[in-house]
Every structure is written in structure tokens, then in C-alpha cells.
Design a protein around this nucleic acid. Sequence first.
DNA 1: AGTGAAAGATTTCAGGC
DNA 2: GCCTGAAATCTTTCACT
Lengths: 167, 167
Amino acid sequence: MSNTEYVNNKEVNSRACLRLKEAGFDAIDAAILRELAADARIPRAELSRRVGLSAPSVADRVRRLEDVGIITGYGARIGPARLGYGLTILIRARPLPGEMHNMIEAIRGTPQIVACDRVSGDDCFVARAHVRDVAEMEAVIDRIVPFGATNSSVVQSSPIEERLVEL
Amino acid sequence: MSNTEYVNNKEVNSRACLRLKEAGFDAIDAAILRELAADARIPRAELSRRVGLSAPSVADRVRRLEDVGIITGYGARIGPARLGYGLTILIRARPLPGEMHNMIEAIRGTPQIVACDRVSGDDCFVARAHVRDVAEMEAVIDRIVPFGATNSSVVQSSPIEERLVEL
DNA sequence: AGTGAAAGATTTCAGGC
DNA sequence: GCCTGAAATCTTTCACT
């Protein structure tokens, strides 16, 4: 017996969906999620055509996906390069004893830093920054350096740009 | 004479860019970007109200921001936690000599990995993965381990969720 | 470049299966 | 839970400043 079924000619693993099916999450919801992740501004009529349901039904499902927190919002993707930020850097940072809070504030107060995770292990923070040039990169790092050790890398390319988890 | 140039391997229309450079990038464009980054599905009428312009003018500006590649698309934000992926991990990886390509393929072929940057410095890759539990975390790491050294961390919190560069 | 109004789509709301 | 059809709302187009 096969574990695969097909939605819009795409193979999906039905066993993986099983757990969510109990909670009322089916292959059509997955298809809706894929379409909206790719283009949040797709008209409902076109979306309903692609998933094979009427517009009102699709609207209901989208609202439910929002209500249960699977869809948390919709955002424009903005390319920093065209805004003059040609360099993307990753900064790993470990605060000195007692400097954790100051380091967080320094990171929050540096507008070039667009994302930051606190992680387990040697490094406490992994931050992502967009800068115009190497001079600005140095300026960003210098804002954090007073509060601990840092290790910075320049992003050269992105083998995976951004994609959806398996549904 | 060609009208195209390339930014991050993406073709952009340079004539549209020229218009932008001549027209500049003003505070209203910045306001539009902020609104669309926060909610890509905001009605144009509401958007025009917020930035203090008529709907057609706003539509023109949005189209221009898309044409010059500042807005690259619109996507639904999807919370992995509600889909059963309760753990987010960061994996730093350095391939063994000659294993670079195999490592990239292993990363691409691991659906739990949702983003990956190639960076300068000691680590070659920094990848982000969503997994259901520690067992799945181990399985993900084991897919990459054959091709080099890895260093994994669990994301505990995110002091900066995601924000826009300064405009 | 920006404004205001009309034409064309889209989303929402009925009611029925 | 899903569909059809109408009402309300939104987007786009166009003539004009």
C-alpha cells in the first residue's frame, strides 16, 4: 500500500499528514499553504481554482489557518541589495559574564541587524545584518564587541533561499 | 544597449532603476514598504490612507518598487510550531575536502532545512531547520555528518524576530 | 507626479445541499 | 463541509490638474 496521494500533480506523504488530519488539516490545506507562501496576494478566485474548491470554501479555510496560528501573517519580501545594502553578514556572539542584557540591547539598537536568535552551545547569539560596505560591517561589529566575543562571516551565497517545512 | 543588469543573479530592469534614482526614494516609499512588510494583504485603499496618498498614486509606487526589485514578492508567514515542528535548530557545517557538492545536495535534500547560507570563515554553511523533536534533530544532523564537520545549536528564543533594514 | 470618479474584479454574505 | 449567486468592497483605469 502506498503512502502517497496527489494534489495538483504533487506527491504528498499521507502518513505525515495523519497527525494533522486528526486536528483537521488535510492535503487541501497544505496546497493552500504552499500557494500563499509563494504568493500571498494571489486572488482568492485563482487560489480556489488551483486547489479545486470554491472561493468561499477557500476563504473559510484560510481564515481557519489564520485563527489556529498556522498562518501568522503576510509580508512583502524586500531585497536589501536594491536599497543599497550589498553585504549580508552573520555575527555569532558570546557575552561576557554580566553583559548578556547589554549585548541584547546593543543588538536591538543596531538597525542593520534584522534578525537574531539566542541558541544553546558556545555561541549565545546568531545575528543577521545587512550593511552597505565593509566599513559599515566594522561599525556594526564594534557596537557588539564591548559586551563579549564575536565571530563574523560574510554571506557569499544562499544554497537555500527560504522554503516551507514539509506539510 | 541592454536594459538589464544583475543583482544576486537576478535580472532587474535598469531603466526602472534609473527612474527610481532620478525620482529618489522618499519617505512615502519607505512608509509603503513598512506597511507592506507588516501586512502584504492590506487593501490599497487603507494603505493609501495610511501613507496619505490616493489609491492610484500608491498603486504606481508599489508597482515601481516591484519593478526595481526592492519588493521581490509577497509571502504568507507560517508558524512551524503549529505544524508540529516544535524545535528550531541552527547547523554550522564545514565540508571535508572534495565533499562540498555532496554536502550541498544533502542539505537541499533534507526538507527540514528551510534556509542555508554559504559564508566566509571557518564554517562554510549555516543552515536553519525545523524539527518535531530531538530524534528528528539527530536524523537531520546525520544526513550532513558524512560530508564534513557539523556544529548544531537549538534556538531558545529570538530577541529579534525579523525586521526591516533602515530606510 | 498627483487627484477623483467610473468600470471591472474580488471578497463576503446569503441560503440550500 | 461545500456550492451557487447576489451585495459590498476593493482595485484599476482614465481623464484632468
